[in-house]
Each structure stands twice: as structure tokens, then as C-alpha cells.
Design a protein around this nucleic acid. Structure first.
Length: 281
DNA sequence: CACGAGACCTGTTCGC
DNA sequence: TGCGAACAGGTCTCGT
């Protein structure tokens, strides 16, 4: 489900609190109730319960699509994959159908990991890089300069769409924001990365940042039966707009399969060749 | 190295 | 109405 803006929104809400729920920072974790075994990658369920009990939540943040809780001694990490969600509720609230892990907390609260499709995963580790060390740069981190991004695009020969989804290449983009960024940059999803000119690479990086910032500003997107309170889904340019007119040129949005993922683009605004080749052809 | 297929899962929507 | 197929915000592994 969630991509960078949705995970960022969840992390902020857990860290800062909302109108409906208090901040979790500074609270003791009182135990653990694992309801679906495969949710927990490591350690064993018994060791997980023993180690996490009594630790304090010191900080909550995000790296790529991973949510992490910095605890007294360990790092608690969640990956929500397609359908995972983290909710705070009153202690001993009625269990819901897809609850996978419940952590009772100080203050009559509990943190619940709910995940219909069971793809989501949880880790408790001493060294955080064991889980997130393989990730590429954060797209919103200014230390990722246009020059560095251009060099990275030059270093491989892959289609842009699958490359943007590759977390070791760049951390945080998923199917929605990859399609939105390519449309904003006016680049066809099948363009080979090392054929981009430096200006096009800079435009792509700028577009990625624009769609991610817009997504965060709107608290992420809420689609299908999963509602998170965000409304970025009302501002999609191409995603899930197959057959509807492009807002720039009126051409009907097309949908193709790339790397087994539905891929949405405007055939007019995003020509299959890079714009340099088109302009000279 | 790069790509495609299959696996992991459940739920909703679409087409006949 | 019913039923199977297609589809879903993700990632891993394996074969070519």
C-alpha cells in the first residue's frame, strides 16, 4: 500500500500525535502479542516479547518505505508492503480481522499492526542497517544532487519505470509516485536510463521531489478500501486514470504492463524516445 | 547484468 | 445472482 508519503504521514502522526491519538514517543512498551507468525522476521517470537518488554520508544521516523522506532536498546522496524497499517487505540480494544501484532503501551494504549494481505513484516534488531542498509538515497535529501542522480542514471541501462521502483537505486518510490513523476517530467516509462541527457535527469529528480512533496502535503493517498485520511488520490495526473483525458493535452491516458506492474502515462506528453531524439528526428 | 515469471496473501471489482 | 478472472500502493527468488 504505502509509499514514501504515506509512510511519512504515519510516522509523523505516531511521533507527534493527532487530534485522535497522543504521541507515542517516551512511552514504555509493556509486551507483545503476535497474531500471525510470519509477520515477524526476527528474532523468534519468544525472544521478541522478552526483549521488547520494558523498552521506551525514543524516536519514530522513516527510511524509504520502512517505519522505524528507536527503542532504549533496539530498533523496531515495520514494512507495510501492500496492505499494512499501524493504528493506536485504547488498550484491549476489540480485535479486528486482520490484526497481526499488538503492542500494549503505557497509558492504556496499544499499537496495532493490521495487514489484510499478510505481506507486511516486522523486525527487532540491534543494528538498524541490517534491515535498511541496502536502500538507495532518500529522494528528498538535498545531498542527492542533480549531478549525482545523472551519474546514477548513466551507470546502468534499464527502463526508467522499473529503475525508479528499485529501492537500492532510490528509496521510497512505489507504483503511484513513479508514474506521477515520469508524467510530470514528460518521460516515457520505457526510456533507457543512460540515454537521458543531464537536463532530463535533473527534470526527473525535480519531478520526483514535487510529487512526493505534494503527496506529503496532502497526507498521502487513500485508495481502495484502505483509508488513511489523505486525499492525494484526488490529484493523480495519470495513476488509475486509464482512458481519461490528459489534463495537459486531452490525449487519453494509456495503461501498459512494465515489470508486471500496471503503468499509466500520456502517449502525447511522454513520447517513447527521449525529447532530444524527438526534437532532432 | 537485466528481464520475466512465480511466489507470498486477501479482498474487491469487472465481465460474461 | 453467480462465478471466475483480473487487479491491487511491494518485494523476494529463480531461471534465462
Amino acid at each position: 500500500m504505502p509509499e514514501l508519503p504515506e509512510v511519512e504521514t504515519i510516522a509523523r502522526n505516531l511521533c507527534l500525535g493527532t487530534q485522535q491519538q497522543p504521541s507515542l514517543v517516551g512511552r514504555h512498551i509493556l509486551g507483545a502479542n503476535l497474531l500471525w507468525g510470519r509477520t515477524l522476521v526476527e528474532p523468534s517470537p519468544v525472544e521478541f516479547s522478552q526483549r521488547i518488554e520494558g523498552q521506551v520508544i525514543e524516536a519514530i521516523d522513516r527510511r524509504g518505505k520502512f517505519l522505524y522506532f528507536q527503542l532504549t536498546c533496539d530498533w523496531l522496524l515495520f514494512h507495510l508492503r501492500m496492505s499494512g497499517d499501524l493504528v493506536v487505540q485504547r488498550l484491549d480494544s476489540p480485535q479486528k480481522t486482520h490484526d497481526r501484532l499488538v503492542l500494549p503501551l503505557e497509558g492504556e494504549l496499544e499499537l496495532v499492526f493490521n495487514d489484510a494481505r499478510k505481506f507486511g513484516r516486522v523486525w527487532l534488531v540491534e543494528e538498524v542497517d541490517r534491515v535498511v542498509g541496502h536502500l538507495g538515497p532518500e529522494p528528498l535529501d538535498e545531498s542527492l544532487t542533480p549531478a549525482i542522480f545523472f551519474t546514477k542514471l548513466q551507470s546502468t541501462r534499464r527502463q526508467l519505470k522499473p529503475l525508479l521502483l528499485d529501492q537500492p537505486f532510490l528509496a521510497g518510490l512505489g507504483n503511484i509516485y513513479a508514474d506521477e513523476a515520469l508524467n510530470l517530467a514528460k518521460l516515457h516509462p520505457l526510456i533507457i536510463s543512460n540515454t537521458l541527457a543531464e537536463a532530463q535527469a535533473a527534470s526527473l529528480l525535480q519531478s520526483i521531489r514535487t510529487v512526493l512533496r505534494d503527496g506529503i502535503a496532502r497526507n498521502g493517498a487513500s485508495i481502495d478500501w484502505v483509508y488513511r485520511g489523505g486525499d492525494f488520490q484526488n490529484y493523480f495526473r495519470v495513476y488509475q486514470r486509464t482512458g481519461k483525458p490528459c489534463q495537459e493535452c486531452g490525449t487519453l491516458i494509456a495503461r501498459i504492463i512494465v515489470g508486471q506492474r500496471g503503468t499509466h502515462f500520456c502517449p502525447q506528453c511522454q513520447p517513447p524516445l527521449s525529447s532530444m531524439e524527438v526534437s532532432h528526428g
